[in-house]
Design a binder for these strands. Structure first.
Lengths: 206, 206
DNA sequence: GATAATACAGACCATCAGGTATGTATGGCC
DNA sequence: GGCCATACATACCTGATGGTCTGTATTATC
Protein backbone atom coordinates (compact mmCIF):
# COMPACT_ATOMS: atom_id res chain seq x y z
CA UNK A 1 0.00 0.00 0.00
CA UNK A 2 2.77 2.48 0.75
CA UNK A 3 4.26 3.92 -2.37
CA UNK A 4 7.39 5.94 -1.55
CA UNK A 5 8.73 8.57 -3.87
CA UNK A 6 12.19 9.78 -4.72
CA UNK A 7 11.25 13.29 -3.78
CA UNK A 8 9.38 12.24 -0.66
CA UNK A 9 10.44 8.89 0.74
CA UNK A 10 7.88 9.34 3.52
CA UNK A 11 5.10 9.04 0.99
CA UNK A 12 2.82 6.16 1.79
CA UNK A 13 3.40 6.49 5.48
CA UNK A 14 0.58 8.93 6.20
CA UNK A 15 -1.81 6.27 7.43
CA UNK A 16 0.70 4.82 9.86
CA UNK A 17 1.76 8.23 11.05
CA UNK A 18 -1.85 9.15 11.71
CA UNK A 19 -2.37 5.97 13.69
CA UNK A 20 0.73 6.65 15.75
CA UNK A 21 -0.37 10.21 16.36
CA UNK A 22 -3.81 8.96 17.37
CA UNK A 23 -2.24 6.54 19.79
CA UNK A 24 -0.30 9.28 21.52
CA UNK A 25 -2.73 12.19 21.37
CA UNK A 26 -5.87 10.24 22.26
CA UNK A 27 -4.17 8.71 25.27
CA UNK A 28 -3.52 12.22 26.48
CA UNK A 29 -6.77 13.92 25.63
CA UNK A 30 -9.31 11.28 24.86
CA UNK A 31 -11.04 10.61 21.57
CA UNK A 32 -13.79 13.22 21.52
CA UNK A 33 -11.48 15.99 22.69
CA UNK A 34 -9.05 15.28 19.88
CA UNK A 35 -9.79 17.04 16.62
CA UNK A 36 -8.98 15.78 13.16
CA UNK A 37 -6.88 18.88 12.54
CA UNK A 38 -4.88 18.20 15.67
CA UNK A 39 -4.28 14.63 14.59
CA UNK A 40 -3.10 15.79 11.18
CA UNK A 41 -0.77 18.35 12.71
CA UNK A 42 0.70 15.76 15.09
CA UNK A 43 1.19 13.33 12.23
CA UNK A 44 2.57 16.00 9.91
CA UNK A 45 0.03 15.30 7.20
CA UNK A 46 -2.87 17.21 5.69
CA UNK A 47 -6.56 16.77 6.02
CA UNK A 48 -6.70 15.40 2.53
CA UNK A 49 -4.50 12.52 3.62
CA UNK A 50 -6.69 11.88 6.64
CA UNK A 51 -9.93 11.54 4.74
CA UNK A 52 -8.22 9.62 1.99
CA UNK A 53 -7.31 6.87 4.44
CA UNK A 54 -10.30 7.07 6.77
CA UNK A 55 -13.96 7.45 5.88
CA UNK A 56 -14.57 9.63 8.92
CA UNK A 57 -13.27 10.25 12.41
CA UNK A 58 -14.96 7.14 13.78
CA UNK A 59 -13.14 4.99 11.21
CA UNK A 60 -9.87 6.40 12.51
CA UNK A 61 -10.98 5.38 15.99
CA UNK A 62 -11.63 1.82 14.90
CA UNK A 63 -8.34 1.65 12.99
CA UNK A 64 -6.47 3.09 15.97
CA UNK A 65 -7.93 0.43 18.27
CA UNK A 66 -7.01 -2.30 15.79
CA UNK A 67 -3.55 -0.82 15.36
CA UNK A 68 -3.18 -0.80 19.12
CA UNK A 69 -4.16 -4.45 19.31
CA UNK A 70 -1.69 -5.41 16.61
CA UNK A 71 1.30 -3.43 17.87
CA UNK A 72 0.87 -4.32 21.52
CA UNK A 73 0.25 -7.91 20.50
CA UNK A 74 3.58 -8.06 18.74
CA UNK A 75 5.24 -6.22 21.59
CA UNK A 76 4.05 -8.66 24.26
CA UNK A 77 4.69 -11.66 22.06
CA UNK A 78 8.32 -10.67 21.85
CA UNK A 79 8.64 -9.84 25.53
CA UNK A 80 10.87 -11.92 27.81
CA UNK A 81 8.19 -13.02 30.24
CA UNK A 82 7.49 -16.15 28.20
CA UNK A 83 10.87 -17.64 29.05
CA UNK A 84 10.34 -19.40 32.39
CA UNK A 85 9.65 -23.10 32.08
CA UNK A 86 7.04 -23.12 34.82
CA UNK A 87 3.69 -21.68 33.64
CA UNK A 88 2.98 -19.99 36.98
CA UNK A 89 6.36 -18.32 36.76
CA UNK A 90 5.40 -17.03 33.33
CA UNK A 91 2.21 -15.53 34.72
CA UNK A 92 4.13 -13.86 37.52
CA UNK A 93 6.75 -12.73 35.02
CA UNK A 94 3.98 -11.12 32.98
CA UNK A 95 2.97 -9.03 35.97
CA UNK A 96 6.58 -8.13 36.64
CA UNK A 97 6.95 -7.13 33.01
CA UNK A 98 3.86 -4.94 33.14
CA UNK A 99 5.33 -3.30 36.20
CA UNK A 100 8.64 -2.75 34.45
CA UNK A 101 7.16 -0.86 31.52
CA UNK A 102 5.47 1.73 33.70
CA UNK A 103 7.27 5.04 33.51
CA UNK A 104 6.65 8.54 34.70
CA UNK A 105 4.40 9.77 31.92
CA UNK A 106 0.86 8.49 32.16
CA UNK A 107 0.06 8.81 28.48
CA UNK A 108 3.03 6.64 27.61
CA UNK A 109 2.02 3.50 29.44
CA UNK A 110 -1.74 3.70 29.79
CA UNK A 111 -4.01 1.75 27.49
CA UNK A 112 -5.52 3.32 24.40
CA UNK A 113 -8.13 0.59 24.17
CA UNK A 114 -9.33 1.21 27.71
CA UNK A 115 -9.57 4.93 27.07
CA UNK A 116 -11.50 4.36 23.85
CA UNK A 117 -13.84 1.81 25.37
CA UNK A 118 -14.72 4.10 28.25
CA UNK A 119 -15.52 6.98 25.97
CA UNK A 120 -17.22 5.33 23.03
CA UNK A 121 -19.00 2.27 24.38
CA UNK A 122 -22.36 3.85 23.78
CA UNK A 123 -21.90 6.72 21.37
CA UNK A 124 -19.71 4.86 18.88
CA UNK A 125 -20.11 1.12 19.44
CA UNK A 126 -17.85 0.19 16.48
CA UNK A 127 -14.94 1.85 18.23
CA UNK A 128 -15.87 0.31 21.55
CA UNK A 129 -16.06 -3.12 19.95
CA UNK A 130 -12.63 -2.72 18.38
CA UNK A 131 -11.24 -1.63 21.75
CA UNK A 132 -12.89 -4.65 23.32
CA UNK A 133 -11.22 -6.97 20.83
CA UNK A 134 -7.84 -5.50 21.74
CA UNK A 135 -8.40 -5.89 25.48
CA UNK A 136 -9.97 -9.34 25.49
CA UNK A 137 -7.60 -10.52 22.79
CA UNK A 138 -4.67 -9.61 24.98
CA UNK A 139 -6.29 -11.21 28.02
CA UNK A 140 -6.69 -14.40 26.02
CA UNK A 141 -2.93 -14.63 25.50
CA UNK A 142 -2.58 -15.23 29.24
CA UNK A 143 -5.14 -17.98 29.43
CA UNK A 144 -2.96 -20.88 28.35
CA UNK A 145 -0.29 -20.19 30.95
CA UNK A 146 -2.87 -19.80 33.70
CA UNK A 147 -4.63 -22.99 32.66
CA UNK A 148 -1.32 -24.86 32.56
CA UNK A 149 -0.43 -23.57 36.00
CA UNK A 150 -3.79 -24.69 37.33
CA UNK A 151 -3.36 -28.14 35.83
CA UNK A 152 0.21 -28.48 37.07
CA UNK A 153 -0.85 -27.76 40.64
CA UNK A 154 -4.28 -29.32 40.55
CA UNK A 155 -6.06 -26.04 41.28
CA UNK A 156 -9.78 -25.62 40.79
CA UNK A 157 -11.66 -23.26 43.02
CA UNK A 158 -14.74 -21.79 41.47
CA UNK A 159 -12.86 -19.67 38.98
CA UNK A 160 -11.56 -20.23 35.47
CA UNK A 161 -8.32 -19.43 33.69
CA UNK A 162 -10.22 -17.10 31.36
CA UNK A 163 -11.74 -15.19 34.25
CA UNK A 164 -8.41 -14.75 36.02
CA UNK A 165 -6.86 -13.63 32.73
CA UNK A 166 -9.55 -10.99 32.38
CA UNK A 167 -9.07 -10.00 36.01
CA UNK A 168 -5.44 -9.12 35.33
CA UNK A 169 -6.67 -6.65 32.74
CA UNK A 170 -9.28 -5.33 35.12
CA UNK A 171 -6.57 -4.57 37.65
CA UNK A 172 -4.42 -2.90 35.02
CA UNK A 173 -7.25 -0.80 33.58
CA UNK A 174 -8.40 0.17 37.05
CA UNK A 175 -4.82 1.00 37.97
CA UNK A 176 -4.64 3.35 35.02
CA UNK A 177 -7.82 5.10 36.10
CA UNK A 178 -6.57 5.53 39.66
CA UNK A 179 -3.19 6.68 38.38
CA UNK A 180 -4.88 9.34 36.30
CA UNK A 181 -7.19 10.33 39.15
CA UNK A 182 -4.24 10.67 41.50
CA UNK A 183 -1.74 11.87 38.90
CA UNK A 184 0.53 9.15 40.19
CA UNK A 185 1.81 6.11 38.27
CA UNK A 186 2.54 4.50 41.62
CA UNK A 187 -1.13 3.54 41.83
CA UNK A 188 -0.61 0.94 39.13
CA UNK A 189 2.37 -0.54 40.96
CA UNK A 190 0.34 -0.77 44.12
CA UNK A 191 -2.49 -2.68 42.51
CA UNK A 192 -0.13 -4.93 40.59
CA UNK A 193 1.39 -5.82 43.95
CA UNK A 194 -2.02 -6.86 45.18
CA UNK A 195 -2.66 -8.80 42.01
CA UNK A 196 0.61 -10.66 42.33
CA UNK A 197 -0.11 -11.42 45.97
CA UNK A 198 -3.54 -12.73 44.99
CA UNK A 199 -2.16 -15.04 42.34
CA UNK A 200 0.51 -16.37 44.68
CA UNK A 201 -2.14 -17.06 47.29
CA UNK A 202 -4.37 -18.75 44.73
CA UNK A 203 -1.54 -21.05 43.76
CA UNK A 204 -0.23 -21.39 47.29
CA UNK A 205 3.21 -20.36 46.11
CA UNK A 206 4.26 -18.08 48.89
CA UNK B 1 -29.97 29.74 47.15
CA UNK B 2 -33.07 28.26 45.52
CA UNK B 3 -35.93 30.70 45.27
CA UNK B 4 -39.13 29.00 44.12
CA UNK B 5 -41.95 30.92 42.58
CA UNK B 6 -45.72 30.60 42.63
CA UNK B 7 -45.78 30.37 38.86
CA UNK B 8 -42.79 28.07 38.64
CA UNK B 9 -42.13 26.03 41.78
CA UNK B 10 -39.16 24.43 40.05
CA UNK B 11 -37.37 27.71 40.07
CA UNK B 12 -34.09 27.49 41.90
CA UNK B 13 -33.55 23.88 40.95
CA UNK B 14 -31.70 24.53 37.69
CA UNK B 15 -28.27 23.95 39.14
CA UNK B 16 -29.20 20.62 40.69
CA UNK B 17 -31.02 19.50 37.57
CA UNK B 18 -27.97 20.33 35.48
CA UNK B 19 -25.74 18.33 37.81
CA UNK B 20 -28.09 15.37 37.65
CA UNK B 21 -28.24 15.61 33.88
CA UNK B 22 -24.44 15.81 33.76
CA UNK B 23 -24.20 12.72 35.92
CA UNK B 24 -26.37 10.71 33.55
CA UNK B 25 -25.35 12.06 30.18
CA UNK B 26 -21.61 12.18 30.82
CA UNK B 27 -21.62 8.60 32.06
CA UNK B 28 -23.09 7.62 28.70
CA UNK B 29 -21.13 9.80 26.34
CA UNK B 30 -18.17 11.14 28.20
CA UNK B 31 -17.41 14.74 29.06
CA UNK B 32 -15.94 16.07 25.84
CA UNK B 33 -18.63 14.46 23.70
CA UNK B 34 -21.37 16.10 25.74
CA UNK B 35 -22.34 19.59 24.66
CA UNK B 36 -23.65 22.34 26.88
CA UNK B 37 -26.81 22.50 24.78
CA UNK B 38 -27.36 18.80 25.28
CA UNK B 39 -26.94 19.17 29.01
CA UNK B 40 -29.43 22.03 29.08
CA UNK B 41 -31.95 20.04 27.06
CA UNK B 42 -31.58 17.03 29.34
CA UNK B 43 -32.01 19.22 32.41
CA UNK B 44 -34.88 21.15 30.90
CA UNK B 45 -33.22 24.52 31.40
CA UNK B 46 -31.82 27.15 29.09
CA UNK B 47 -28.27 28.13 28.31
CA UNK B 48 -28.71 31.27 30.34
CA UNK B 49 -29.30 29.15 33.41
CA UNK B 50 -26.24 27.08 32.67
CA UNK B 51 -23.83 29.99 32.45
CA UNK B 52 -25.50 31.69 35.35
CA UNK B 53 -24.56 28.79 37.62
CA UNK B 54 -21.29 27.75 36.00
CA UNK B 55 -18.49 29.94 34.74
CA UNK B 56 -17.79 27.60 31.85
CA UNK B 57 -18.11 23.98 30.85
CA UNK B 58 -15.07 22.99 32.90
CA UNK B 59 -16.66 24.46 36.02
CA UNK B 60 -19.66 22.22 35.42
CA UNK B 61 -17.26 19.30 35.22
CA UNK B 62 -15.72 20.16 38.57
CA UNK B 63 -19.12 20.69 40.16
CA UNK B 64 -20.39 17.41 38.71
CA UNK B 65 -17.44 15.54 40.19
CA UNK B 66 -18.01 17.19 43.57
CA UNK B 67 -21.72 16.48 43.36
CA UNK B 68 -20.90 12.88 42.58
CA UNK B 69 -18.66 12.65 45.61
CA UNK B 70 -21.31 14.14 47.87
CA UNK B 71 -24.27 12.11 46.66
CA UNK B 72 -22.45 8.80 46.51
CA UNK B 73 -20.89 9.58 49.86
CA UNK B 74 -24.32 9.96 51.44
CA UNK B 75 -25.58 6.91 49.57
CA UNK B 76 -22.83 4.63 50.83
CA UNK B 77 -22.95 6.08 54.31
CA UNK B 78 -26.57 5.07 54.58
CA UNK B 79 -26.05 1.64 53.04
CA UNK B 80 -26.56 -1.50 55.12
CA UNK B 81 -23.05 -2.90 54.75
CA UNK B 82 -21.92 -1.12 57.90
CA UNK B 83 -24.09 -3.29 60.12
CA UNK B 84 -21.96 -6.38 60.80
CA UNK B 85 -20.09 -6.25 64.09
CA UNK B 86 -16.95 -7.83 62.68
CA UNK B 87 -14.90 -5.37 60.61
CA UNK B 88 -13.87 -8.00 58.06
CA UNK B 89 -17.51 -8.85 57.58
CA UNK B 90 -18.18 -5.19 56.91
CA UNK B 91 -15.51 -5.13 54.23
CA UNK B 92 -16.95 -8.23 52.61
CA UNK B 93 -20.43 -6.76 52.94
CA UNK B 94 -19.20 -3.69 51.09
CA UNK B 95 -18.17 -5.85 48.16
CA UNK B 96 -21.48 -7.69 48.28
CA UNK B 97 -23.26 -4.35 48.29
CA UNK B 98 -21.31 -3.11 45.30
CA UNK B 99 -22.27 -6.29 43.52
CA UNK B 100 -25.91 -5.81 44.41
CA UNK B 101 -26.21 -2.36 42.90
CA UNK B 102 -24.99 -3.46 39.48
CA UNK B 103 -27.87 -3.57 37.02
CA UNK B 104 -28.21 -4.06 33.30
CA UNK B 105 -27.54 -0.54 32.12
CA UNK B 106 -23.88 0.39 32.17
CA UNK B 107 -24.43 4.11 32.48
CA UNK B 108 -26.51 3.59 35.59
CA UNK B 109 -23.92 1.94 37.77
CA UNK B 110 -20.57 2.99 36.37
CA UNK B 111 -18.55 5.73 38.01
CA UNK B 112 -18.75 9.31 36.83
CA UNK B 113 -15.51 10.17 38.63
CA UNK B 114 -13.62 7.40 36.86
CA UNK B 115 -14.95 8.51 33.50
CA UNK B 116 -14.03 12.12 34.18
CA UNK B 117 -10.57 11.28 35.48
CA UNK B 118 -9.76 9.19 32.44
CA UNK B 119 -10.81 11.92 30.05
CA UNK B 120 -9.61 15.07 31.75
CA UNK B 121 -6.50 14.12 33.70
CA UNK B 122 -4.31 16.08 31.38
CA UNK B 123 -6.50 18.46 29.43
CA UNK B 124 -8.51 19.75 32.39
CA UNK B 125 -6.62 18.98 35.61
CA UNK B 126 -9.16 20.78 37.82
CA UNK B 127 -11.80 18.29 36.78
CA UNK B 128 -9.40 15.40 37.14
CA UNK B 129 -8.48 16.56 40.62
CA UNK B 130 -12.12 16.79 41.66
CA UNK B 131 -12.71 13.31 40.30
CA UNK B 132 -9.67 12.11 42.21
CA UNK B 133 -11.05 13.55 45.44
CA UNK B 134 -14.28 11.63 44.91
CA UNK B 135 -12.51 8.34 44.23
CA UNK B 136 -9.87 8.53 46.93
CA UNK B 137 -12.34 10.02 49.38
CA UNK B 138 -14.58 7.03 48.91
CA UNK B 139 -11.66 4.64 49.20
CA UNK B 140 -10.75 6.27 52.49
CA UNK B 141 -14.12 5.36 53.97
CA UNK B 142 -13.08 1.70 53.76
CA UNK B 143 -9.76 2.16 55.46
CA UNK B 144 -10.94 2.05 59.06
CA UNK B 145 -12.75 -1.27 58.65
CA UNK B 146 -9.79 -2.82 56.86
CA UNK B 147 -7.39 -1.57 59.51
CA UNK B 148 -9.65 -2.89 62.26
CA UNK B 149 -9.86 -6.26 60.54
CA UNK B 150 -6.08 -6.38 60.25
CA UNK B 151 -5.67 -5.54 63.93
CA UNK B 152 -8.31 -8.02 65.03
CA UNK B 153 -6.56 -10.85 63.22
CA UNK B 154 -2.99 -9.69 63.64
CA UNK B 155 -2.42 -9.36 59.91
CA UNK B 156 0.56 -7.49 58.50
CA UNK B 157 2.01 -8.62 55.23
CA UNK B 158 3.74 -5.88 53.31
CA UNK B 159 0.54 -4.03 52.50
CA UNK B 160 -1.45 -1.33 54.23
CA UNK B 161 -5.13 -0.76 54.87
CA UNK B 162 -5.02 2.33 52.68
CA UNK B 163 -3.51 0.43 49.78
CA UNK B 164 -6.07 -2.36 49.97
CA UNK B 165 -8.84 0.21 50.18
CA UNK B 166 -7.54 1.82 46.99
CA UNK B 167 -7.22 -1.60 45.39
CA UNK B 168 -10.94 -2.20 45.84
CA UNK B 169 -11.55 0.92 43.79
CA UNK B 170 -9.00 -0.19 41.21
CA UNK B 171 -10.90 -3.42 40.74
CA UNK B 172 -14.22 -1.58 40.46
CA UNK B 173 -12.92 0.99 38.01
CA UNK B 174 -11.21 -1.68 35.96
CA UNK B 175 -14.38 -3.74 36.06
CA UNK B 176 -16.29 -0.81 34.63
CA UNK B 177 -13.81 -0.46 31.80
CA UNK B 178 -13.99 -4.15 30.94
CA UNK B 179 -17.77 -4.07 31.21
CA UNK B 180 -17.88 -1.24 28.70
CA UNK B 181 -15.36 -2.91 26.44
CA UNK B 182 -17.35 -6.12 26.47
CA UNK B 183 -20.78 -4.51 26.71
CA UNK B 184 -21.40 -6.82 29.64
CA UNK B 185 -22.00 -5.85 33.28
CA UNK B 186 -21.02 -9.39 34.22
CA UNK B 187 -17.37 -8.35 33.93
CA UNK B 188 -17.71 -6.35 37.13
CA UNK B 189 -19.24 -9.29 38.98
CA UNK B 190 -16.40 -11.49 37.83
CA UNK B 191 -13.71 -9.18 39.11
CA UNK B 192 -15.56 -8.54 42.36
CA UNK B 193 -15.54 -12.30 42.87
CA UNK B 194 -11.78 -12.30 42.50
CA UNK B 195 -11.48 -9.34 44.84
CA UNK B 196 -13.57 -11.04 47.48
CA UNK B 197 -11.55 -14.23 47.14
CA UNK B 198 -8.35 -12.22 47.50
CA UNK B 199 -9.52 -10.54 50.67
CA UNK B 200 -10.68 -13.81 52.18
CA UNK B 201 -7.29 -15.34 51.40
CA UNK B 202 -5.50 -12.35 52.90
CA UNK B 203 -7.44 -12.74 56.11
CA UNK B 204 -7.41 -16.52 56.00
CA UNK B 205 -11.17 -16.58 56.40
CA UNK B 206 -12.15 -19.24 53.93
C1' DG C 1 3.56 5.44 -23.53
C1' DA C 2 -1.32 6.02 -22.57
C1' DT C 3 -4.44 4.69 -18.72
C1' DA C 4 -5.87 4.13 -14.40
C1' DA C 5 -5.37 3.91 -9.65
C1' DT C 6 -3.10 5.51 -5.49
C1' DA C 7 -1.67 8.98 -2.25
C1' DC C 8 -1.79 12.79 -1.03
C1' DA C 9 -2.32 18.56 -0.91
C1' DG C 10 -5.05 22.49 0.10
C1' DA C 11 -8.95 25.41 -0.38
C1' DC C 12 -13.53 25.57 0.93
C1' DC C 13 -18.04 25.00 3.48
C1' DA C 14 -21.93 24.26 6.67
C1' DT C 15 -22.76 23.33 11.20
C1' DC C 16 -22.27 23.41 15.77
C1' DA C 17 -19.83 24.46 19.84
C1' DG C 18 -18.80 27.40 23.79
C1' DG C 19 -19.60 31.70 25.36
C1' DT C 20 -21.71 36.61 25.76
C1' DA C 21 -24.96 40.34 26.07
C1' DT C 22 -29.17 41.85 27.32
C1' DG C 23 -33.69 41.56 29.13
C1' DT C 24 -37.08 40.14 32.77
C1' DA C 25 -39.49 38.12 36.65
C1' DT C 26 -39.19 37.26 41.55
C1' DG C 27 -38.39 37.99 46.25
C1' DG C 28 -35.59 39.85 50.25
C1' DC C 29 -34.68 44.10 52.60
C1' DC C 30 -34.74 48.61 54.42
C1' DG D 1 -42.60 50.83 48.07
C1' DG D 2 -38.30 51.53 45.93
C1' DC D 3 -33.83 49.10 45.33
C1' DC D 4 -31.07 45.41 44.52
C1' DA D 5 -29.46 40.71 44.07
C1' DT D 6 -30.81 36.33 42.35
C1' DA D 7 -32.36 33.23 38.84
C1' DC D 8 -33.19 32.56 35.02
C1' DA D 9 -34.67 33.34 29.41
C1' DT D 10 -33.40 34.47 24.56
C1' DA D 11 -30.96 36.23 20.87
C1' DC D 12 -26.73 36.51 19.14
C1' DC D 13 -21.65 36.14 17.92
C1' DT D 14 -17.32 33.81 16.66
C1' DG D 15 -14.22 30.36 16.11
C1' DA D 16 -13.58 25.60 15.64
C1' DT D 17 -14.75 21.15 13.63
C1' DG D 18 -15.99 17.41 10.73
C1' DG D 19 -16.31 16.74 6.16
C1' DT D 20 -16.11 17.77 0.87
C1' DC D 21 -14.18 18.95 -3.50
C1' DT D 22 -10.92 19.55 -6.82
C1' DG D 23 -6.27 19.30 -8.26
C1' DT D 24 -1.76 16.94 -8.85
C1' DA D 25 2.30 14.00 -8.51
C1' DT D 26 3.66 9.22 -8.69
C1' DT D 27 3.64 4.57 -9.99
C1' DA D 28 1.78 0.00 -11.50
C1' DT D 29 -0.15 -2.05 -15.72
C1' DC D 30 -0.93 -3.24 -20.18
Amino acid sequence: MPRPTKQDPERGAARTRLLEAARDVIRRQGFAATSVDQLCAAAGVTKGAFFHHFKDKAALGVAAADFWGETTGAFFEGAPYHRPADPLERVLAYIAFRRSIIGDELFEFTCLAGTLAQETYESAPEIGAAAGRAIFGHAATLEADIAAAMAARGISGGWTAASLARHTQTVLQGGFVLAKAGQDPQMVHESLDHLERYIRLLFQAA
